[in-house]
Amino acid sequence: MADTAADRRKFLVVVDDTPECHNAMRYAARRAAKTGSGVILLFVVAPPEFQQFAGIEAVMREEAHEEAQQVLRALATRLKADTQIDAELIVREGKPAPEILRLVAEDTAIHVLVLGAGNGSDGPGPLVSSFAGQFAATMPIPLTIVPGHLDMAQIDRIA
């Protein structure tokens, strides 16, 4: 039986506006290309904090989702040019860790979560800290953390 795109294992990459997400995306794309896997790019939008007027909240929510879609489309275009992989693009709203766990539970083809670690003085970032710490023992899939200090050639060598 041949694998279809829906049956292929997938690498889940959480993307945002940080430089380290590019490292995670490149690593996942290279691994996916080598293994015949797929890539999901997930952008988690924070819910609007301004909730006094439903109309304003709806506009803020729509703008946040559109901005997330623009970021995802740009990253997907870059990924396609580099690896010929068409990424699956997902926007969720909420807190990142619960949304990631919910997506992993919903899509059984997701086999690896790939996160980029920041290399600043404030640590690797809240997601890496959460998933390498609090959620590590209960994660249903492996976690790959791509260090933020690696350059593209280094990432290509280890992927």
Rank of each mutant, 00 (worst) to 15 (best):
A2K: 05
D3P: 03
D3W: 09
T4G: 14
A5S: 04
R9A: 04
K10S: 00
K10N: 00
V15H: 10
V15P: 07
D16A: 01
T18P: 01
T18F: 07
E20I: 01
H22F: 03
H22V: 01
A24E: 03
A24N: 07
M25N: 00
R26G: 06
Y27I: 06
A29F: 12
A32P: 00
A33M: 07
G36C: 02
S37L: 05
S37H: 12
V39S: 05
F43G: 00
F43Y: 12
F43S: 03
V44Y: 07
V44H: 08
V45Y: 09
V45C: 02
V45Q: 03
F50H: 13
F50A: 10
F50V: 12
Q51Y: 07
Q52C: 04
F53Y: 14
A54C: 00
G55T: 13
M60P: 00
E62P: 06
E62L: 11
E63W: 14
E63H: 15
A64E: 05
E67D: 12
E67P: 03
A68D: 14
Q69A: 13
Q70R: 14
L72E: 01
R73N: 06
T77L: 08
L79Y: 13
L79M: 14
Q84V: 02
D86E: 15
D86C: 07
E88V: 10
E88M: 11
E88N: 11
V91T: 14
R92L: 09
G94M: 11
K95T: 13
P98R: 12
L103V: 07
L103H: 09
E106P: 01
T108N: 10
T108A: 08
H111L: 02
L113D: 04
V114R: 12
L115S: 01
G118E: 08
D122R: 11
G125K: 07
G125L: 01
P126I: 04
L127D: 02
F131V: 02
F131W: 04
F135I: 00
A136E: 01
A137Q: 10
T138L: 04
P140V: 03
I141A: 03
I141L: 11
T144R: 10
I145C: 09
G148L: 02
G148K: 03
H149R: 13
M152P: 00
A153E: 04
A153L: 00
Q154S: 09
I155C: 05
A159R: 13
